[in-house]
Each structure stands twice: as structure tokens, then as C-alpha cells.
Design a protein around this nucleic acid. Sequence first.
DNA 1: TGACAGGATCGAAACGTTTAGATTAGCGTT
DNA 2: AACGCTAATCTAAACGTTTCGATCCTGTCA
Lengths: 339, 339
Amino acid sequence: MLHVAEAARVSVATVSALINGTATVSPELSARIEQAIRDIGYKRNAIARSLKMGTTRTIGLTVPHITNPFFTDVVSVIQQAFDRAGYAVMLCCTDEDLNTQDDQIKLLLDRMVDGLIVARVGDGALLKGIVEDANVPVVLLDRICEGVDTDAVVLDNQRAVFDAITYLINLGHRRIGYITGTSDITPMHDRMTGYREALQAAGLPVSEELVRSGNFHEIDGYNATMQLLSLHERPSAIFSANNPMVIGTMKAIRDIGLSCPEDISVACFDDFPWSDVFQPQLTTVAQPVQAIGEQAANLLLDRLAGNRDAPPRKLVLKGRLMIRNSCRPLGTVAQSLSA
Amino acid sequence: MLHVAEAARVSVATVSALINGTATVSPELSARIEQAIRDIGYKRNAIARSLKMGTTRTIGLTVPHITNPFFTDVVSVIQQAFDRAGYAVMLCCTDEDLNTQDDQIKLLLDRMVDGLIVARVGDGALLKGIVEDANVPVVLLDRICEGVDTDAVVLDNQRAVFDAITYLINLGHRRIGYITGTSDITPMHDRMTGYREALQAAGLPVSEELVRSGNFHEIDGYNATMQLLSLHERPSAIFSANNPMVIGTMKAIRDIGLSCPEDISVACFDDFPWSDVFQPQLTTVAQPVQAIGEQAANLLLDRLAGNRDAPPRKLVLKGRLMIRNSCRPLGTVAQSLSA
DNA sequence: TGACAGGATCGAAACGTTTAGATTAGCGTT
DNA sequence: AACGCTAATCTAAACGTTTCGATCCTGTCA
């Protein structure tokens, strides 16, 4: 900018005034300055501007795994929303690791992001500190934190799983295997609650041997399924509470020589774009990814627009059971239901 | 930092020296400073540091669509690599739009990213300017630019498609539909060349009616497939040169009442994690995503480490044909091959 | 004609760092 | 006792903006 000012024979203050439109500058100086800008190829340095203004027009976004299609979609929506609003987004993947998450959030804060959208991992102790220090607005995505009072958009996980399990029960399934992620995050906890409640509501026992947990990866789903399938009395259906893990479930079923839905029914949380075109067409609980992403972006943009003091808002969206053909009715349906 | 300095009764220079280890500071001052840092909860402002140092330890990454599984995976790998190296990554999705891409790259440069990884869109005129102005190192990903002389990592697209089409031909297919993306980017161009050459090598005609192009989205694949399937003499196999479009292809096949591979064989570019577990198990050309991401990251990290003057390096990796069960041999194989 | 309002322009401080160079203190040599 | 050397510390400028308040000019009005 100094060079521009010199070339146009004006002060830097005038250049700044013209660029930002913060004061009127005469036509002739404007012309000179604009010419100089073109000649020099000047571009305003956003870092210097950020330092002075105290705002970076950048937000931080952390998710556990970007390869999980649910997060992929949400990230995509959020990215677009902030792009439209003229914000850049720094993306971090925490790989479901608490320390990684802490490091990344610190890194983002060091870089003076204006806001944070976090699909958190672990117990959120650091997050609590951040929110309370209240330097930047943060919105929680998908997963909320007990002690942390801030904006959030989540799914009614309990209800969604309740409905899915109830659907399986109505098909005649009595032994329903359940594969969960680590239970220290709310969605996994709530989904598990939905599972238990559905069984209880149907008067069925909750057998611990039917519940397995893994760390969200395909391999974990594979191992969990292997265990379920080698039970003395194996389940007739399996519900996987997480999207990548269900791939592992399907591989395990294949490797053990069974087929779905003939030998075993499968349903899972989170939809895939290809669910209704490959066989078996998976019955899933679809999250409204578009809405989730947009709402999260809107909540944060609203705070960034200056609405800092409004009380925390918590949006709870509804999942939708997408019934396809990966779950089959058991022969005993009629009797079981009438029993 | 000023506050820390005051609290510890030292100068800011000493605080800086201690934090960065750029000079020795006596044990007693160190203790006082560290205490003050803890008391105040001081965190270094990365923006101010960036301004002074001229480096942000942030890189920009632009891809056309993050929801394309190929890019999802590559982004994930790149993100991890830079995370390990202490860099943040700003992610932009250009949505296959040239103007969007230009805007985003400008935005990234304004923010003084230290480097750029670009899976480009369009003819790359702006990119050429950027690379030539040589302020920041850029590595091209997946797609190269004619006039732009910079680091790049790409696939041998031509060979990969040549092999895939040859495979179909060996199965006995003679009319092979081909669905491409817009041909202004190198991979699409090269893949198309591979298609033509494979046909020519087998002495088959290249019929323009069998070639359809779309804009990379599922719906484009759907429409293109619909057109191919309504041809007077419809193809016995379809190859989709892009990953999301093949979903559209499968939907079109389903909607028209055909099935794969019984009525029509399908293969495509880019692998899916679930390819070998759902039916039909798609035959695909798998790109080495892990290697691509790592190589791209390494090329850029090497430049960032100071190796600015080395000549541009272009890495060409090989695809791998993953043969599954979505392509069936035609009855006429024996005769055709011996003919 | 002189005072003054108002618009255009400018000078300089500030944002929070890093760092070159100056200063100081301590200590062994001669 | 004077000297020089080294290590520790400090002062102040610089990075590229924004912005407050000051200055300058022009024209209007009494």
C-alpha cells in the first residue's frame, strides 16, 4: 500500500480510505490511486488487516473424520455457506482423538479464527474453557457437551434409533445385535438409549452380549460383527450406530459366508448416496445433512454478525428411517406379534 | 506479550527470546516469565507473528468437490500430512466453477497462505499468473495445466482407461458407452484418449454416439446413461470416467428396468471403499489415493522447507484395475477374439 | 474582507510480534 | 586497575494495515 501511495503521490490513509470506502476521495485522486493499484498489481494484505482489525474472516471447523460420508456432506454444506459469506474455513480432522482435537483447536485459536464449529470428541473439558473464556463463538455439531453452554445443532438420536429398532422388532426380530462407537459422546449414548428403550417397550430383554463397541472405523465394525456372528445364538439382525462401521459389518457377513438379508438383516445410522442402487439396499437412518450444515453455519454467522449475547440455542433435528431391502421379515412374525 | 513482560519485569524481547528459544535467558528470568505466562494465560498471536515473519504456516487446498470420494480421501491424507508438519489447511471447494476457483485462490493468497495445492478447474489462466509471479509454491493435483510449469502429481489416466477398456473388449464387448466429464481438464482428456486408443488398438470403430459428457455430478451420469440406453443399438457396456456419475449410471439402469451385469456391464474410474461388498461389485480403476495425497504434500512441504529453485517435478502414478463382477463376458467372446 | 463551515487529505499511532544492534554486567588477564 | 570478552538483556524499528485527529483548502455568508 505504501508503494501505491507513493506512486499515486498521496498518503496511505487516502489509499485506505478509497479501498474501504470509509471516506470520500476526490475523483482525480481516485483515478490516480486506481491506476497505481493496477500498475503495481497491489493486493491488500489480509494478515495485516486482521492484526489491526482483530478479525480474520476465517472460521475453524473440526470433525472426527472427513471420510465419514456424514461429515463429508456436512463439511461441504458448511464450506459453501461460509464461502458465500466471504469467510474462509480452516478444516481439521481430529481422528476421534482427544489430544489431537485439543491441539487443533488451540492452533485454530492461535490463528485468531473468528468462530469455531466443532464436532467434538471426548469430554470437552478444553471446549468448556474455550466457550467460557468467550473469545470466539462456537457452535457444536452433531455432538453436544454436558457442561458446555453454547449453540448446538444435533439430531434426535434416541428417537431415530428407537424407530429403527422398533421397525426391526416389528419385522419379527428378537435378537438384534447393536454396534456402537465409544460411548463418551452424546450421539452414541443417545442412540444406545434408543436401542434399549425400543427393546424394553417391546418387552424384550437387553442382552449385553448383543452390544459391541468399536472406535468408529470400518475395521471396528468388522471385528464387532465377527464377534456377534460367532455367538452361540447369533442375532438375526444387526444395527450399526455409525456409518463407516457398517461397511465392516457387511464385509464380515460376506467373509463368514452369510448373506444379507437372507441370513441376517442389517440396518445402520447415516445414509449413503448409493444406498438405493446397490444390493442389498441398506435400510438406514438418514440425517438431514443439508439442514444440519446450514443451521450450524447460520448459528455461527449470526453470532459473527454481532449477536453475541443471545442465550445459547440448541437445534434438534429429526432423522428419517429409509426403509429398503436389507432387513427381512422373519417367518415367525405373525406368531411373535400376537404372542 | 507486553503484559507478560510487564508482569515479569522484563522486556518483550526477552519474552520473545524465551518463547522461541532464539537466545539464552537466565534461569531466574525464565522462571518469572513462565510464571507470568501461566498467570495471564498468554498465548502467542499467530497473526502478528505471521505479519512480521511473512509466513502463516497455513496452506490452501482447493478441490472441485469434496463429496467426490476420490477428493475426500485425498483431502483427508493431505490434511493429516500438514497437520503433522504443524501447518493448518484452508479448504475450498470450487464446485467445478472457474470463477469460484479464481475467487477462492485470490482469497487464499490474500490471506498469505504459504503454499497452494490445487486440483484445478478450467484452463488455469489465473493459475499461470500465480505460478509465474512465484510468490508461493503451488502443486497441481490430479489435473495439470498446459502452460503452467510447476510441481504436479497426477495419474497415468490414459493408460488406466486403456487397460480398463481393453479388459471390456477382451470380455467380448464391442459397443462400449463412455461417459466423460467436461473435457477441458487433462484427466478427462487423457482418459478419453485412452478410450479411443483401446478401441483403435482392437480395430474397433470409435462411434461418437457412444460418447456422452456431463458435468461430473450424479445427475449428469444419470442423463448420459439414459441417452446411451435409448440408442437404437444400445451399448453392452458403459464406462464412466468419474466417480459420482457412476451412481447416476446405476440409477438410470435400474429405472429403465435393466440390471447390471446381466443386461449391461458397468465399470468406472475411482474406487469406493464399499465396492467389494455390495452388488454388483463394481469393477473400477483405483487411484492410489494415499500415495497421491502424500506425494502432493511432500512436494509442497519440500518447497516450503526452502527448496524453491529445484525444477518442477511431475509425478505420474499408476492406476490399478480392480476387477469385480459388474462386467460380464459376452457369449461371443471366443469367436470375436479369434476373428 | 474576514470568519467559518465543510470536505478532502494527511501524519502518526496502534495492532502484537521479531530481531538487529546497543547496552550492561560479570569475569578473567595482564 | 584497566582492559577486553562473553553472555544476558534491552531499545527501537519494522511488518502492512486502519483510523483518529489535525491540517489545508475552497467557497459562503455576514
